[in-house]
């Protein structure tokens, strides 16, 4: 069917009365996702979206009343670590942080708590998880994708939109699209998503969208060689000289040395991944 979320997902929104939370809660509702309510400390008991979505003070209250098992977080960066920890504490299974730019050491504390829990964190700085026709747990534009058998996993949110839009233009559908986020420390990574896609009977092929900084694409290549049997198509930006003029953008993704240019492409190519040099090449590399 899909990975991470599906028909059984009951979605709540942390920060449901804020400018962004309120708007995207209504977008999710309109897209037919099973959204059940949300939190906004101090506003418990109120309703939002024309009385259709209940608001609670705490995640605990919300989960008890609505059986929510997915939480999408829109609170400001300074309170996000607290919001994630609250959801972990309440046993929420899938926690999606749309908010990014969380202090680094806060993320270390969050990841430490995740390790001793059954929760999975998507993000921070994620566009969410999209299962076309079933649920949009995040900020994906509505009607951006059609249901199908291609799994998409991307670091960048906007590139994730570009890729699934390009697929749609060629009549290709998506099983699940996951934006894992591009902050220095993230929750679920390429490796776990590849593992989930490999096991998902409704995903036949996987598109991996990478970017500059870090070595997650190279670690993904190793894993693909060892344990992924489904065809993988990859599109990695920042691998040519253009990267060199974009150096300032890397200030948060760690250091970059110019001699690492092209290493991700060659690592992926070496293990049989089909590389798309341009966005428009992706549909051509997908088996019909």
């Amino acid at each position: 069917m899909s990975i991470l979320i599906g028909t059984e997902s009951r979605i709540m929104v942390q920060g449901i009365t804020g400018r962004r939370g309120r708007f995207h809660a209504s977008q999710m509702f309109n897209s037919g996702s099973q959204i059940v309510g949300g939190t906004s400390p101090g506003k418990g008991g109120e309703w939002c979206y024309d009385g259709r979505l209940p608001v609670f003070d705490t995640v605990k209250d919300c989960v008890e009343a609505t059986s929510a098992n997915v939480s999408v977080i829109f609170v400001p960066p300074h309170s996000t670590a607290d919001a994630i920890l609250e959801s972990i504490d309440c046993g929420v299974k899938i926690i999606i942080s749309i908010t990014g730019s969380i202090p680094l050491q806060d993320m270390m504390v969050v990841n430490s708590a995740l390790q001793s829990s059954n929760s999975i964190l998507v993000g921070p700085n994620s566009p969410g998880v999209l299962v076309p026709g079933i649920a949009n747990a995040g900020i994906f534009p509505n009607e951006i994708a059609i249901p199908g058998n291609v799994g998409v996993v991307s670091r960048s949110g906007t590139l994730c939109y570009e890729v699934i839009d390009t697929l749609k233009q060629s009549g290709l559908g998506v099983s699940t699209a996951v934006g894992i986020g591009d902050d220095p420390i993230i929750g679920i990574d390429f490796l776990s998503c590849l593992e989930l896609f490999e096991a998902d009977p409704h995903t036949d092929q996987i598109v991996l969208v990478g970017g500059p900084g870090g070595d997650s694409e190279i670690r993904a290549a190793t894993m693909i060689m060892e344990s992924v049997t489904k065809p993988v198509i990859a599109y990695v930006v920042g691998e040519n000289l253009a990267t060199s003029i974009l150096r300032p953008f890397f200030s948060r993704s760690g250091s970059l040395s110019l001699d690492s240019l092209g290493k991700k492409t060659s690592a992926l190519k070496d293990v049989g991944v089909l590389m798309a040099n341009k966005l428009s090449e992706i549909p051509l590399l997908i088996k019909r």
Binding site: T158, G238, I245, L246, F249
Partner: peptide, 28 residues
């Protein structure tokens, strides 16, 4: 709006041998 689009846009420019004058990322 976003780093991914910044890269994509600059790579398309560079493919045509053109440098940008400025790149503003307004974020999400």
């Amino acid at each position: 709006n976003g780093m991914g689009l910044a890269y994509l846009t600059i790579e398309e420019l560079i493919a045509l041998n053109v440098m940008p004058a400025a790149m503003i990322d307004i974020h999400g």
